[in-house]
Simulated scan of single mutants.
Amino acid sequence: MNRHSLLHSLAFWLAFAGLSSLAAAAWAATPPDDWTRLRLRSMGSACFTIPTGYCRSEAAYVSDDSHSLTMISQKLLGRFAEVSMVRHLNGATKDRTVFNLKLNVLEEDTYLPNIVWGVSDFRTELGSKIFFLAGSKTIEAFGVTAHAGVYKDPVTTDKETFFGLEKTVFPLVVVAGERIHDQTTVGVKLRPYPGVSVEYARRLDAPDDQASLYRLVYLRAF
Rank of each mutant, 00 (worst) to 15 (best):
residue 216 L to I: 11
residue 189 K to Q: 10
residue 203 R to E: 07
residue 195 G to H: 10
residue 10 L to D: 15
residue 29 A to D: 14
residue 188 V to L: 10
residue 79 R to K: 09
residue 62 V to K: 03
residue 123 R to Q: 15
residue 29 A to P: 11
residue 67 H to L: 13
residue 38 L to M: 14
residue 136 S to G: 02
residue 193 Y to T: 14
residue 140 E to L: 01
residue 213 L to D: 04
residue 119 V to D: 04
residue 218 Y to S: 08
residue 206 A to W: 01
residue 108 E to Q: 05
residue 88 H to C: 01
residue 50 I to G: 02
residue 53 G to N: 05
residue 181 H to W: 09
residue 3 R to I: 15
residue 27 W to F: 14
residue 192 P to K: 04
residue 10 L to E: 14
residue 179 R to L: 08
residue 157 T to L: 03
residue 9 S to M: 13
residue 69 L to E: 07
residue 180 I to Q: 05
residue 178 E to D: 06
residue 23 A to W: 14
residue 64 D to A: 04
residue 104 N to M: 08
residue 199 E to H: 08
residue 159 K to G: 13
residue 75 K to S: 07
residue 132 F to P: 04
residue 216 L to P: 14
residue 148 A to T: 08
residue 82 E to F: 01
residue 16 F to M: 13
residue 95 D to S: 04
residue 208 D to V: 11
residue 23 A to H: 15
residue 92 A to H: 13
residue 103 L to N: 06
residue 122 F to D: 06
residue 31 P to Y: 05
residue 131 F to P: 08
residue 5 S to N: 14
residue 126 L to T: 10
residue 100 N to F: 00
residue 221 A to W: 15
residue 44 G to H: 06
residue 201 A to I: 08
residue 170 F to G: 07
residue 150 V to S: 03
residue 102 K to V: 06
residue 61 Y to I: 13
residue 30 T to Y: 07
residue 96 R to D: 11
residue 67 H to K: 10
residue 91 G to H: 00
residue 109 D to F: 06
residue 131 F to T: 12
residue 111 Y to T: 12
residue 129 K to Y: 06
residue 186 V to C: 04
residue 105 V to N: 00
residue 203 R to G: 03
residue 174 V to N: 03
residue 184 T to D: 04
residue 35 W to A: 11
residue 209 D to E: 09
residue 43 M to T: 12
residue 202 R to H: 14
residue 121 D to N: 05
residue 131 F to C: 11
residue 32 P to W: 06
residue 215 R to S: 06
residue 187 G to K: 01
residue 180 I to T: 09
residue 171 P to L: 04
residue 151 Y to V: 03
residue 41 R to T: 14
residue 135 G to R: 00
residue 18 G to D: 15
residue 19 L to I: 14
residue 210 Q to R: 08
residue 117 W to C: 10
residue 138 T to Y: 03
residue 21 S to A: 14
residue 93 T to V: 09
residue 144 V to Q: 00
residue 134 A to W: 02
residue 18 G to I: 15
residue 195 G to T: 11
residue 104 N to T: 11
residue 69 L to V: 09
residue 222 F to A: 07
residue 184 T to H: 03
residue 174 V to K: 01
residue 89 L to V: 04
residue 60 A to Y: 02
residue 159 K to W: 13
residue 220 R to T: 15
residue 120 S to V: 09
residue 202 R to T: 12
residue 112 L to G: 12
residue 27 W to H: 15
residue 128 S to N: 11
residue 129 K to W: 08
residue 129 K to I: 10
residue 178 E to C: 01
residue 159 K to S: 13
residue 214 Y to L: 09
residue 30 T to D: 10
residue 55 C to P: 15
residue 171 P to W: 04
residue 219 L to V: 13
residue 129 K to D: 12
residue 64 D to P: 11
residue 66 S to L: 12
residue 203 R to H: 09
residue 85 M to R: 02
residue 151 Y to N: 00
residue 153 D to P: 01
residue 55 C to N: 14
residue 60 A to E: 07
residue 90 N to R: 01
residue 30 T to N: 09
residue 174 V to W: 01
residue 23 A to S: 15
residue 58 E to R: 06
residue 200 Y to K: 07
residue 180 I to G: 03
residue 221 A to V: 15
residue 63 S to P: 12
residue 99 F to V: 08
residue 152 K to Y: 06
residue 77 L to S: 12
residue 2 N to Q: 10
residue 76 L to F: 14
residue 51 P to E: 02
residue 37 R to M: 11
residue 182 D to K: 09
residue 26 A to C: 10
residue 79 R to F: 06
residue 25 A to I: 12
residue 206 A to N: 04
residue 167 K to R: 07
residue 60 A to C: 13
residue 12 F to S: 12
